[in-house]
Design a protein around this nucleic acid. Structure first.
Length: 574
DNA sequence: GCCGTTTTCGGCCCGACTGTTTTCAGTCG
C-alpha cells in the first residue's frame, strides 16, 4: 500500500486536531498544520524518495522531529505518536470539529462532560437538551449544533469555477450598484483562480453610511444570514454557497484586498516579514506604531515589506516570497498569448459542430490555428473514427484549409492509449497527421506501476506528440491516476513530446504543481480547450488560470508559439 | 514543533462576530 503525501498530511492534520482538543501549545498545533499543508502540496512523492534511499529534501517547517515522523509513516504507513494520542482521546472526536461553531475547547468539554464522541451522539445530546446545561453553552448554541448536523451531509462541498463565477459575478455586479459603493472585488480563492472554491469572499469599498451591508443580507438568493456586523457579514445562498462580505473605506482597500485574497499561509508569511521590519499588517493597512504607512493599494502593501506586487495565483506560500526577494517573478501567461488550440472535437465523433464551424469559432476568439482531434475507433461511446473515416476527415481538412482565411486547421486525432500502451490506430496513418494527441479513456484501475508503464510506452511511439489530460481526473467524479510525475515529465522531455493542460473546468488536468514541475524540467505544456462545441473555446480561460497557478509563462506554453514556430516542434525526430 | 542579520531560548499573524456573559472566551476567516 503506497503512502502518498496526502496520507502523511492527513496524519499530521489529525495529530493537530487531537493536540488542540487536548489543549496543547497552540504553536505546536500550528507546526503540525503547517507541515500537513506543506507536505500535502509538495510536488514530489516523499515516500517514493525515501523508498529509493534518497534523503528527505530540506522543507521549510519540517524539522528533525517531523522528518522522523515522515520516515516512520513512509516506512510503515502508521505513526506511533498518533496511535498514542488515540489511546488518550478517541479518533472520532475530531469529526466534531467539522461542525461550525465547535472548536477544540467545546469539543473537549463535550467529550469530558457528556462523553460525546461521534456526530450521532452529539445530535442525541443536543436533542435531549443536555448541551445547554454546560457552562459556556446555551440554548442557541444547542440549536446551531442541531442545524449544522442536519446541513452537514448536503453542503460540505466545494464548487467548480463556472458555478462559483455565476454567483460571484452576479452578486458583485449587484453590490456595485448600491449607493455609496466605490469598488467591488471578488477576493479569496476565487481571485487566486483555484480550480474549486469553498466559499466566495467579496470586498467592498464604500463611503460611510452606505446601505451596502443591508442590501447584501437582503439579496434575493440569500437563504440564511449566518452573521452580520458593521463591517462583515456571512450569508448562505439558496444553492448552498457561502458568501462573506467585508466592507472597508477606500483608503484601506489594498490592504483588505491583500488580506482577503489570501492564501492564509501567504498572509502569515507576509505578516511575519512585516513583523521582522517592526511593522504590523492588518486588513486596514501597514502600520509602524500608530502610523499607517501603506494600504490604499496592494502595491503599497507589498512595497512596505520590500516586495514587488505578487500575482494572486502565486500567493500560496510556495516559494513566491523567497523568489520575489531575489529575482523578478515570472510574467505569467495570459489568454491573449495563446495562438492556437491543439485539442478539439467535431460532429464526426462526439462534438456538436462541424469542423468549419469550430474553425470559425476559434478564429473569432483570436486563434490562428486549431487542431481537429476527434476520438479514435476504440471509444465507441464517442463514435470514435476508424482509419477510413479519419482519412476522409484529413481530406476534408485539406479542402477547408484552401477555403478558410485567418485560421489554419491541423490534422490530428485524440487516439486512445490502450492498456498495454499501444495506440488505437495504425502507425502508417498516425504518421500522416500533423499531431497525435494520446489519451487514456479506459482501465483507470490498472496498478500504478502498469499505468505508468502504459503511458511511458505510449510516449515511446514515434508519432506520439501530446499526452492529453494526463491525470485523467474529473473533479468530484474520478480521482487522478497515481503516477510518478517527475519520471513521466522527464520521459516526455527525453522523447520530445508534450503534456496537455486540459482547460475543461471539470478536468483542469495537469494540476498546478505538475505544470510547475514541467516548467522546471523544460517540458512545454499545451493549454487546450478540448472543445466539443463552439462556446467551449471560452474554457481556455480556466486553463490559463490553472497555468498561472503553475507559474507558467508564455515561453513554457506550446500553443503560445506561432504556427511557423510550432510545426518543427510537432515533428518528432526520435 | 520550528526557527534565528537583535535570538540556540523565547518567540510564533490579526481582528470581527456570537453567545454567554456582565467583561470575555471561543470560533472563524
Amino acid at each position: 500500500m503506497p503512502v502518498h503525501n496526502a496520507d502523511i498530511a492527513a496524519i499530521f492534520e489529525e495529530i493537530a486536531d487531537l493536540l488542540e482538543i487536548q489543549g496543547a501549545n497552540p504553536f505546536r498545533v500550528r507546526a503540525y498544520r503547517n507541515a500537513a499543508r506543506t507536505v500535502g502540496d509538495y510536488g514530489r512523492d516523499l515516500a517514493g524518495l525515501i523508498a529509493k534511499g534518497q534523503p528527505l529534501p530540506k522543507i521549510p517547517g519540517i524539522g528533525d522531529d517531523l522528518a522522523g515522523k515522515i520516515h516512520e509513516i513512509a516506512a510503515t504507513g502508521r505513526c506511533s505518536f498518533l496511535e498514542r494520542l488515540h489511546r488518550e482521546l478517541p479518533a472520532a472526536v475530531t469529526e466534531l470539529l467539522k461542525i461550525p461553531g465547535l472548536g477544540p475547547k467545546r469539543v473537549k468539554t463535550l467529550y469530558e462532560q457528556l462523553k460525546v464522541q461521534t456526530l450521532p451522539e452529539l445530535q442525541a445530546a443536543a436533542q435531549s437538551g443536555r448541551i445547554r446545561e454546560l457552562a459556556g453553552f446555551g440554548e442557541k448554541t444547542e440549536q446551531h449544533i442541531l442545524a449544522a448536523i442536519g446541513a452537514q451531509a448536503s453542503e460540505a462541498r466545494r464548487f467548480k469555477r463556472p458555478v462559483a463565477a455565476q454567483y460571484a459575478e452576479a452578486l458583485a455586479a449587484w453590490l456595485a450598484g448600491v449607493a455609496g459603493v466605490e469598488r467591488v472585488e471578488v477576493a479569496g480563492s476565487y481571485r487566486r483562480r483555484r480550480e474549486t472554491v469553498g466559499d466566495i469572499d467579496i470586498l467592498v469599498a464604500a463611503r460611510s453610511g452606505s446601505p451596502v451591508m443591508q442590501r447584501f443580507i437582503g439579496y434575493d438568493e440569500v437563504r440564511d444570514v449566518l452573521a452580520h456586523g458593521e463591517t462583515r457579514a456571512s450569508v448562505m445562498l439558496k444553492c448552498g454557497l457561502q458568501v462573506d462580505l467585508r466592507v472597508v473605506e477606500a483608503a484601506a482597500f489594498g490592504a483588505a484586498l491583500h488580506y482577503f485574497t489570501g492564501s492564509k499561509a501567504h498572509n502569515i508569511a507576509i505578516r511575519k516579514r512585516a513583523q521582522e521590519r517592526g511593522l504590523k499588517i492588518n486588513e486596514y493597512g501597514v502600520f509602524r506604531g500608530e502610523n499607517r504607512i501603506a494600504g490604499e493599494t496592494e502595491d503599497s502593501v507589498f512595497a512596505a515589506v520590500g516586495l514587488p506586487w505578487i500575482p494572486p495565483e502565486l500567493r500560496e506560500d510556495q516559494g513566491e516570497i523567497e523568489w520575489a526577494m531575489r529575482a523578478p517573478l515570472p510574467k505569467l501567461v495570459e489568454r491573449a498569448e495563446l495562438k492556437g488550440d491543439l485539442h478539439c472535437h467535431s460532429r464526426a465523433s462526439d462534438g456538436h459542430a462541424s469542423i468549419e464551424a469550430m474553425a470559425l469559432a476559434a478564429k473569432a476568439r483570436g486563434l490562428d490555428y486549431l487542431a481537429i482531434t476527434d476520438h479514435s475507433q476504440r471509444l465507441k461511446i464517442a463514435h470514435g473514427l476508424d482509419s477510413g473515416q479519419l482519412l476522409r476527415q484529413m481530406a476534408e481538412i485539406d479542402r477547408l484549409n484552401e477555403k478558410l482565411r485567418g485560421i489554419t486547421l491541423l490534422k490530428g486525432v485524440e487516439v486512445d492509449i490502450l492498456a498495454d500502451g499501444s495506440l488505437d490506430l495504425p502507425d502508417a496513418l498516425l504518421g500522416q497527421l500533423d499531431l497525435v494527441v494520446g489519451a487514456v479513456h479506459s482501465r483507470f484501475d490498472l496498478p500504478p506501476a502498469r499505468q505508468m508503464k502504459r503511458l511511458l510506452t505510449a510516449m515511446d511511439h514515434p508519432h506520439f506528440t501530446l499526452l492529453a489530460h494526463p491525470a485523467t481526473r474529473e473533479i468530484d467524479r474520478r480521482p487522478a491516476l497515481e503516477l510518478d510525475w517527475l519520471k513521466l515529465i522527464r520521459h516526455a522531455r527525453q522523447r520530445g513530446c508534450f503534456l496537455e493542460l486540459n482547460a475543461q473546468p471539470e478536468r483542469l488536468d495537469l494540476f498546478d504543481i505538475h505544470c510547475r514541475m514541467a516548467k522546471e524540467e523544460g517540458v512545454l505544456v499545451a493549454i487546450n480547450s478540448d472543445a466539443h462545441k463552439e462556446a467551449d473555446f471560452d474554457c481556455l480561460d480556466y486553463g490559463i488560470g490553472q497555468a498561472r497557478r503553475g507559474w507558467l509563462e508564455a515561453k513554457d506554453v506550446l500553443n503560445s508559439r506561432s504556427l511557423a514556430q510550432l510545426r518543427p516542434l510537432l515533428r518528432r525526430t526520435m
